[in-house]
């Protein structure tokens, strides 16, 4: 694991000129995608998409199924199955944490050990429906993740919900492996977020805030653990499903069950306010990342988590372009991240 703090870095990178970042072209294989909330899958098939690849989901005798074709046509079309299902037409599938997880890649490599560990969600998915919502982003999944990892845009785009950036101290650290990037932000004496003040009943003027965001690079699964004091923990899972080069889908879970009412019910719905604000910028942004350009993005030290994310994604993509789909020795996607998230602190 490598670590760096944004306070350590200097604005701008003048070293060897890297190639332009074209995140819309990432198509990383051999990973589990949380393709749907469990509660959305019944005996009636639904269709989801990963990198333009169709995933039909349904249940047979309560057991989740995933296939390239609608089950009514599966037998007839099985011969046309792709390598993603190894010619069987059916994807490896697991049900955990309230999600249907489907394998994207070589089905022979599907391994339950590669499923991320999400300590704040019950393994059997037994969580109230109000914690789960679906939002859509008008950008590729990588740009959507970059938006989430990004620290300073909230002060401008989401000031009316999350609050301004004024604080006494704001320290950001980034850790990474070949498969994950983790950003930890510690803020002291920050203005209480409007949503926490007006809905959460926090009457203090200032609050401390520690937020850990753990990102699985292949699957865009973002495991977030923000802790507000005074205030509440708002652990959430934001998995950005890469529908295609222009759009991504996010079936989120905000485990606010420990917070008081009405905060616990309203907080999971905050994405309905935040997501259109994000879309207003990522939508025009996305088309400007479609093709490689000579004009490189500029960065400030606040972009350190984002630039690290870009770099790690590019390294992973390079490796896969070479045909290496294995997980590095430093990567344990399924390892216990309770301590990393600061849940036991």
């Amino acid at each position: 694991m490598h670590t760096v703090s944004t306070n350590d870095t200097v604005a701008g990178q003048r070293s060897k000129r890297p190639s332009d970042w074209t995140p819309v072209n990432y198509d990383l294989h051999d990973t589990w995608f949380p393709v749907s909330h469990s509660r959305d899958v019944s005996s009636r098939p639904i269709r989801r998409i990963i990198h333009s690849q169709p995933y039909f989901l349904w249940r047979e005798n309560g057991i989740s199924q995933a296939a390239e074709f609608h089950p009514s046509r599966l037998a007839a079309l099985r011969h046309a199955s792709s390598a993603f299902t190894g010619g069987s037409g059916s994807y490896p599938v697991i049900e955990r944490y309230g999600y249907i997880w489907a394998w994207y890649g070589n089905p022979d490599h599907a391994d339950i050990q590669l499923l991320p560990h999400i300590p704040f969600l019950p393994l059997d998915g037994n969580i109230p429906g109000y914690t789960q919502r679906t939002v859509r982003f008008d950008a590729s999944s990588a740009l959507s993740v970059e938006n989430l990892i990004d620290l300073t845009h909230a002060d401008f785009l989401h000031a009316n919900t999350i609050g301004d950036g004024i604080s006494e101290s704001d320290v950001v650290e980034v850790e990474w492996t070949s498969e994950t990037v983790t950003r930890t932000r510690m803020v002291t004496q920050k203005s209480v977020a409007p949503v926490m003040r007006w809905v959460g009943g926090i009457r203090a003027k200032y609050q401390d805030f520690r937020a850990v965001l753990h990102i699985h690079l292949r699957s865009n699964v973002c495991i977030s653990y923000p802790r507000f004091r005074p205030g509440y923990d708002v652990p959430n899972l934001q998995p950005f499903l890469p529908v295609g080069r222009h759009r991504s889908r996010c079936d989120v879970t905000f485990n606010t069950t420990a917070a008081p009412s009405p905060f616990r019910y309203l907080m999971p719905r905050i994405n309905y306010i935040i997501q259109p604000q994000d879309n207003s910028v990522v939508r025009p942004q996305n088309q400007r990342y479609l093709d490689e350009s000579d004009r490189r993005d500029l960065h400030s030290r606040f972009d350190a988590p984002g630039t690290r994310y870009r770099y790690q994604m590019e390294q992973l993509a390079k490796r896969q372009r070479r045909g290496d789909f294995s997980y590095g020795t430093d990567a344990e996607p399924g390892r216990d991240i309770t301590t990393l998230l600061g849940m036991d602190g």
């Binding site: 300073t152 785009l157 942004q285 400007r288 990342y289 993005d297 972009d303």
Partner: peptide
């Protein structure tokens, strides 16, 4: 086009010292 993250500058606002990007405030 903001040179930081390519978002249209016209989504921002005019401030004393120029134009402020609506995404990160550059």
């Amino acid at each position: 086009r903001c040179p930081h993250r390519r978002v249209p500058l016209s989504l921002g606002c005019v401030v004393e010292s120029g134009i402020q990007c609506g995404y990160h405030g550059w």
